[in-house]
Simulated assay, not measured.
Amino acid sequence: MRLRIDLAYDGTDFHGWARQNGQRTVQGEIEAAIARVLRLDPSDVLLTVAGRTDAGVHASGQVCHIDVDDDVLERAIGHMSGVSASEALHRRISRLVPSDISIFSIEKAPEGFDARFSASDRVYVYRVADGVTKRDPRLSRMVLRADDVLDVNAMNRAVKATIGLHDFGSFALPNPGGTTIREVKFAAWQRVPHVQLTPENVYTGGAEHNSTQAVGAAPDGGHAYEIDFAESGLLTFTIIADAFARNMVRSLVGASIAVGRGKKSVDWFIDKVNDPEREGLTGPAPACGLTLERVNYPSDELLAERAEAIRAVRTLR
C-alpha cells in the first residue's frame, strides 16, 4: 500500500530533509519513528518527498509517501480498536517524532500518486522583517531581519521577469543529470496588512451564530481587542512553480533584496534571468526566512500522467 503523509516542521535545527549519516534530518527522524512502530530495520523504510528542503528551511505543507506491505502496516494497530492501520500509524508516530515535526495525516494514496513527480506545483513563501516592520521575536526562527527599508515596487518589477519558462542557471544549481529550467507561475512581493482582532471580527461559532459577533462586553471601548496578528507588517515573497532547482528561491530572494536596497538595478536582475550563468555576485538569502507552504496535485485521474510527464528532462521549447 502507498501511504500519503502530510506534515510540517521547523527546519532550524535540522540538516535539511534528506537522510545523512551523523546528521539530524527530517527524513531520518520520521523514518526512524516508522521503523520503530512497524518493527522494521530503518534501512527498509524509505520516504519519497515532494520537495527536499535545505538545512534551516521550514515546511508548513510538506508531502511525502511510503510504500508498505499490508501485513506490515497492520502491526501499527496493536491494541487499538476501531481505527484503520494508517490512522494507527499516524497516532503512534506522532507521539514519537520530536516537537519540531508535526504529522498532520497519513492516508492511503490514490492510484498513480507520487509525492514528488505527481505534484503540479509548489508554493514557497520567504518572510522578511525590514526597517519599517515591528519585529516580533517569536518569529525570529522563520523571518529574516533586514534593517533597510526595502523598495517593494522595484523588487516586484524585478521578479516579474521570472514568470514563465526560464533557465534559472544564474540563480540555481542543477541536480546530477538535471537542468535548471523551471516554469514559474506566480512571483510577487507584498507587505502583510495590519489585520487586527477586534470586537467586530470575533466569531462566536455555532450554527446559530452564522455571523461575527463580540462575546461579552469590550473593556476600554473595545481597544483591548485591537491586537495585530503576528505576521502583520512583514514583507513576503510568494513564488509558485512546477518545481524548484537547488537554492533557486533563496537566490531569487537574495537578488531581490539587493534590488530593494538600491545596491542593484532592476535591469541587472532581469539580465540575470535572461543570461543563465551563475556569476556569484549574489548568494542565496539565509534559510531561516523560507517556508514550503503548500504542494498542489492534479485530480486523481491525472496523477499518473503528471508523474510520467515530469520525469522527462525539460527544455526551453
Rank of each mutant, 00 (worst) to 15 (best):
A258M: 12
S105Q: 09
K264G: 00
F14S: 00
N21V: 11
S211E: 13
N175E: 15
V83S: 04
V68N: 05
A88R: 04
N210C: 10
T179A: 08
Q190F: 15
A255L: 05
R157L: 14
E74N: 11
Q190I: 04
G254L: 08
M248T: 02
F244T: 01
Y203W: 14
V143F: 02
D242G: 15
S256L: 07
T315V: 10
V97I: 10
L302P: 00
D70Q: 14
D6R: 09
A188M: 13
A154Y: 05
A243T: 05
A76Q: 01
G56M: 04
G283H: 02
V83H: 05
G205N: 13
G216V: 07
R278K: 14
V192S: 06
I66N: 08
R19L: 13
R75P: 02
S140C: 05
H209G: 07
R157S: 13
G131L: 09
A255G: 03
S94N: 01
D151Y: 05
D228H: 09
E111D: 15
I30M: 15
P284Q: 11
L139N: 06
R24G: 03
A285D: 01
T48K: 10
L144D: 12
V313N: 10
D121Q: 14
I240G: 01
D275G: 07
I103S: 07
D6H: 03
F168Q: 02
P42E: 11
E301M: 07
S84E: 10
E29H: 01
V83E: 08
A230N: 14
R91H: 09
L165N: 11
L235T: 06
R19C: 04
E208W: 14
G254A: 11
D114A: 11
D121F: 12
R52K: 03
L173N: 12
R261E: 15
D114S: 13
A217N: 13
M155C: 13
A214I: 10
R52S: 01
K134W: 13
S81Y: 03
V49G: 06
Q213L: 14
D242P: 00
R116T: 08
A119M: 11
L197H: 11
A76H: 01
D10T: 06
Q27E: 12
V45L: 08
T212N: 15
R182E: 05
F229T: 10
D267C: 00
V149W: 04
D242N: 15
E107R: 15
A187Y: 03
